[in-house]
Simulated assay, not measured.
Amino acid sequence: MKYAVAAIAGLAVLSGCATFGGDMVVRVSGRVPTGQSDDGGLGCELSMLGESGNVVSSKPVGRVFSVPMMVVAGPEPKGYHFIVQCRDGQRFESDVVQISSQRSYARHLDLGELQAR
Rank of each mutant, 00 (worst) to 15 (best):
I8L: 14
I8M: 07
A9N: 06
G10C: 09
L11K: 09
A12W: 07
A12N: 11
A12E: 11
V13W: 08
V13C: 09
L14K: 09
L14F: 10
S15G: 12
G16V: 14
C17I: 10
C17G: 02
T19P: 00
T19G: 09
F20A: 09
F20Q: 14
F20S: 09
F20K: 12
G21T: 11
M24F: 08
M24V: 11
V25W: 03
V26R: 12
V26Q: 06
R27F: 11
V28N: 00
G30Y: 01
R31A: 15
R31P: 05
R31Q: 15
V32W: 01
T34L: 12
T34I: 12
G35Y: 05
Q36K: 15
Q36P: 09
Q36M: 14
S37R: 12
S37D: 12
D38E: 15
D38F: 14
D38N: 15
D38G: 10
D38S: 14
D39G: 09
D39L: 11
G40N: 14
G40F: 12
G41R: 02
L42M: 13
L42W: 14
G43K: 03
E45D: 08
E45M: 08
E45S: 07
L46Q: 01
L46T: 01
S47L: 02
M48S: 04
M48V: 08
M48H: 04
L49K: 13
E51N: 14
E51F: 09
E51Y: 10
S52K: 15
S52Y: 09
G53A: 07
G53D: 01
G53M: 05
N54E: 11
N54H: 12
N54D: 14
V55E: 13
V55H: 06
V55K: 10
P60Y: 00
V61R: 01
G62L: 02
R63H: 15
V64K: 05
V64R: 02
S66W: 03
S66V: 04
V67S: 01
V67E: 00
P68K: 05
P68M: 06
M69G: 02
M70C: 03
M70A: 07
M70I: 11
